[in-house]
Write a protein that binds this DNA or RNA. Sequence first.
DNA 1: ATAATAAACGGACCGGAGTCCGTTTACACA
DNA 2: TGTGTAAACGGACTCCGGTCCGTTTATTAT
Lengths: 201, 201
Amino acid sequence: MSFIPLPPGSSLGMATERSDAARNRERLLAAARELIDECGAEGLTMNQLAERAGVGKGTVFRRFGSRAGLMLNLLTESEADFQARFMFGPPPLGPGAPAAERLTAFGTERISYVLEFGDLLLAAEASPHHRLDVPAAVLAQRHLQMLLEAEGIQEETWLLAGALAATLDPERLLHAVRVHKVAPERLQGSWRQLVARLVRN
Amino acid sequence: MSFIPLPPGSSLGMATERSDAARNRERLLAAARELIDECGAEGLTMNQLAERAGVGKGTVFRRFGSRAGLMLNLLTESEADFQARFMFGPPPLGPGAPAAERLTAFGTERISYVLEFGDLLLAAEASPHHRLDVPAAVLAQRHLQMLLEAEGIQEETWLLAGALAATLDPERLLHAVRVHKVAPERLQGSWRQLVARLVRN
DNA sequence: ATAATAAACGGACCGGAGTCCGTTTACACA
DNA sequence: TGTGTAAACGGACTCCGGTCCGTTTATTAT
């Protein structure tokens, strides 16, 4: 008799998932991409998705928690990519350039990223318990904070970084581009200006 | 026979509303305030509201268009108040003070306002076709733009004003205060710093 | 092979926002 | 006071995200 009933997966704590679960996740992700191709991200419904993937609705929600969770999942790859670029990639976005230039690069690159994945990002933001606590957002804000500190700013760098992050909010950027027909280059220009004015000594 | 069937209200184009409609609007607004007292703004449902006001659900939606529209309506008074203060009120928020000081004052006052009406503002933001085009938001952004220009900034003042407005976004401010326990005074301090760094010559 | 079990499954169900359309009513005019 | 009409009304209905819980199944131990 084992007092601690060992988890059934690997011998150390079940990091694996059951094979049917894995299969269903693949199906769901594939179906989701199909549907988004066909109807756009905002047109995807969870019922549709379940049906298309040939699974029950409960399965969809167990896997992803919510609609926003699904969208987040679809974004993980590109988000990880972006993170890797600003943390380990070549300058001026990655380490090696002066902090001010990295700040500028961060914004312009982020703007491009947001415009590329717009609908998905929008759909992912409808998170029930807070889009601002999503790991990628926290990481980005800490990165901004670090760059501000590297530029010699000392007070309230966390909040200042939050202010900068707010400027890059997908909803706002997409609103400017789609409703007000602002060219992406102008957004990037105004970011450059904002950063330049903030960090000049 | 009149070729142009005159609208039934006043002789010039019916700006008035039918008496039953007016009565129902009052009932609805009163009922909404009651329910918000009892359950909070996020706890109010449109069914509840209709029932409490003794009207049909269709009436609620004809009157306010959506849940967000209702919340916006409940905010009109305080929003108008705030607008009046920054447009016509005493300095430093109103005209008479240097633009830089008015900018600072705008932010600190807005932060207080947002923290006071937090839940209502949050509920009003779930607008279907864009929280950023609500008249009050447009006006505020134009005000910020004007102040930036008065400080000698010339390029992309509209976008820069948008960036500043983003900083004052209710969701972000309330998240900082409620989740991260940031004191309102710190938020105001970081706004002051942001403005000071932006407009120093 | 068999049994035990925890996890995964599926789909009926729920609550809430927003729509639709047949009915009622306030108002203007006669 | 009566009548025509546009507006207002109400509530059943649709659609959707999310939950619940009884059933099935992969896995592991014997």
